[in-house]
Design a protein around this nucleic acid. Structure first.
Lengths: 200, 200
DNA sequence: TAAAATACTATACAATCGTTCAATTTATTC
DNA sequence: GAATAAATTGAACGATTGTATAGTATTTTA
């Protein structure tokens, strides 16, 4: 995963960012067992007191990490697709190519997401981070599909089409995490392309 | 959730089953925080020592609960679809109607699944339960799609079509769990029906 | 350069966890 | 009904957790 900050990601000072990055590494390596301040601080080579210095609780740190990871991926995908502004169909292809790229479609990255999803219900901060990321992602997809619809009427409402595509993406991520050898990245892209062609 | 045992679910003695059911209740109510032997045994009104009497570890209990829940749902869906044996398209509709029924599409039920998914990587027993459930489900779907293919050639390989449908189902379940108000059960069924029609 | 602000350390605390196991209770067998 | 087997209890244990905080170190400001 690239450590460059992107346009949708919040900005953090060095010390905070170090903890956020260590958190992602820890979750990616160990799943939910990596969501421990001692493990995170071992990775960051700092003392555990720093978590409560920089964040109000471990959940705030986890929420920041979730947002950092997800907005990073979303930003990259949005940027890649905006190259094709004016052609919604190509926008979607570029978006899908990025979110199923080898940078993202690694079991370790997906494992971190799975951990975050599992925490959405039990932490208000993580809930907020999730809602923000999810809404941004889903609205982007819907906007592109509305663009397709304006060129040539699509067969599902853009809202429903976006929900379908978003769900398939999530489901493929989940499956790739749980059973990595079931399908390839190329097949994942192909399935989503099929969906997009089916609504057009 | 019905407490009747179904054809794919293993059989357990009363004491074991009581713990399994309490486990599901606990996860459904509290998510991953409910995966605690004290919370589970409180619900079952038994002493915590019983977990290690009936199971070798809490992970074995969790694996049994995962299998119990999932095979219960899969059995019901398979049974419902088998009424339409000989008509693969109707089989799939019946299957989808069951898996998006109000019995299943409750945030609490989906929450339990999310907890289990999050544990797949860190417990061999849960990994095994997951692989078994996932394989049964996916093979069933593929078999029906092969049936469709034999009647009239489908546009994706049955394997890939099954992966796509399975992913969409998982994704819709996940989304429904994380943001329950985004879409209705009817819309979920509609999206999957659209997928099935798109491959035909 | 001294003072103020920020960053960081290390320890302690209370709480919770899953595993273990001797003792007790209940159910089954003969 | 006595003996055996199975089920159950409850306490103890060592391990781990996140939060809190006084003290120390480093950086920034004037």
């Amino acid at each position: 995963m690239s450590n460059q900050q992107t346009s949708l990601q919040p900005r953090y000072k060095k010390g905070k960012l170090k903890l956020i990055e260590a958190t992602l590494e820890s979750l990616m390596a160990e799943g939910s067992e990596g969501a421990s301040i001692r493990k995170i601080c071992d990775r960051a080579n700092v003392s555990i007191g720093l978590v409560n210095y920089h964040f109000t609780s471990i959940n705030e740190l986890l929420a920041a990490a979730y947002k950092h990871l997800s907005m990073g991926v979303l930003s990259a995908a949005v940027e890649k697709s905006e190259v094709h502004a004016g052609d919604p169909r190509r926008c979607l292809s570029a978006f899908m190519e990025e979110i199923f790229s080898h940078k993202v479609l690694q079991p370790s990255v997906l494992r971190a997401w799975l951990v975050f999803w599992g925490m959405v219900d039990s932490s208000a901060a993580i809930r907020m981070a999730h809602d923000e990321v999810n809404t941004a992602s889903w609205e982007f997809l819907e906007k592109i599909i509305i663009g397709m619809d304006q060129q040539s009427k699509v067969k599902l409402s853009p809202r429903l089409a976006a929900i379908g595509l978003s769900s398939m993406i999530d489901g493929l991520w989940l499956e790739k995490c749980l059973q990595p050898d079931t399908f390839t990245a190329i097949e994942a892209v192909r399935l989503c392309e099929f969906w997009v062609d089916a609504i057009a």
